[in-house]
Amino acid sequence: MADPYQALGVAKGASEKEIKSAYRKLAKELHPDRNKDNPKATERFSDVTKAYDLLLDKDKRAQFDRGEIDADGNPAGFGFAGGQGGAYSRGAGGQQFDFGNSGTDFGDIFEGLFGGGGRSSNPFGSRQRSAPPPKGANVSYRLKVEFIAAATLEKQRITLEDGKTIDLSLPKGVEEGTQMRLGGKGRQGPGGNGDAIVTIHINSHPFYERDGDNVTLELPISLKEAVEGAKIKVPTVDGPVMLSIPAGSDSGKTLRLKNKGFHKKTSGRGDQLVTLMITLPKDNEKLSEFVKDWDNDDNPRADMGV
């Protein structure tokens, strides 16, 4: 190599940024992986790499500019037999490259140089690692889960594209739109199977509703139960339980059943909130007669200003 500045096509006073830019452009054009049938390009690639190595080393560049070393980094006026502990690699066409003792880091130059494809363990194509073969496509599934099953984390069976079935354990904190990834249950590919992506849809319930981790329920009670109080059976997502209705309960009063809601993401469960709703019997003559003669001055709407 005669002159490193000429090899890279830069001026003698070029900045480090200009040197890197020139080398990146030439390296992309001349890299052996792109010129396997062009030994001249490979030879020139070796020259521009050596030039880049020298000019990016401030001490060597200063020595070259003062005439103390030649373009190969050897003392001016002396031959060089090679082999001072450097590492060598052979590129396309058998061309030998020396990249051993320079200390230059080529990572910033060759990263992404060829569009993010396979990256060499050194910049000359030796021991190059190609990109791994792609995995197969992911497959999306939509799984409908009953409200109670979601609250109690009941296992769900799903049939995959290949006809196989899997029993899924629902995650704590499951909610509408929760996604579960089943590794390796997608379509086949040269690099292995893709994944199955399962999106959870929770069906509505005839009388339960969800409020965060809690389950809400409007519970019908009779007038007698509201006035006198009672112990009644109440449905929950875990099965019926007994609930004490305090005497004199109004419609809208809410009672709490602890740990009868959805499983939380961390630990524990939400509660079931039971709202009492007094229902009156239809066409009950005794009730009609009772209220007809009942003189009650209380105004239940007084707090509303009417």
Results as ranks from 00 to 15, higher is better:
2 A>C: 04
10 V>L: 09
12 K>M: 12
13 G>C: 06
15 S>Q: 07
26 L>K: 13
27 A>G: 13
32 P>I: 04
35 N>M: 05
36 K>E: 04
39 P>G: 05
42 T>C: 15
43 E>R: 14
43 E>W: 11
43 E>P: 04
49 T>D: 02
52 Y>W: 14
53 D>W: 11
57 D>N: 15
57 D>S: 12
62 A>Y: 12
64 F>K: 00
64 F>S: 01
80 F>C: 06
82 G>D: 00
83 G>F: 14
95 Q>C: 04
97 F>R: 01
100 G>Y: 15
101 N>F: 13
107 G>Q: 12
109 I>M: 14
115 G>L: 07
117 G>P: 07
121 S>Q: 13
121 S>F: 14
130 S>E: 08
132 P>R: 05
134 P>Q: 07
135 K>R: 15
137 A>D: 03
139 V>Y: 06
140 S>K: 15
141 Y>K: 04
142 R>H: 11
142 R>V: 10
150 A>L: 05
167 D>H: 01
170 L>S: 00
173 G>V: 08
178 T>H: 14
178 T>K: 14
189 G>N: 01
192 G>P: 00
194 G>S: 07
196 A>I: 02
197 I>D: 05
202 I>T: 05
204 S>K: 15
207 F>K: 12
209 E>R: 15
215 V>T: 02
226 A>W: 02
227 V>G: 00
237 V>E: 00
239 G>T: 07
240 P>E: 06
244 S>K: 02
248 G>W: 01
253 K>W: 07
255 L>G: 04
258 K>W: 11
262 F>C: 01
262 F>H: 00
266 T>C: 05
271 D>E: 05
273 L>A: 03
277 M>F: 08
277 M>P: 00
281 P>Y: 09
283 D>M: 06
286 K>R: 13
286 K>E: 03
288 S>G: 09
288 S>H: 10
290 F>M: 03
302 A>M: 09
304 M>G: 10
306 V>G: 10
306 V>N: 11
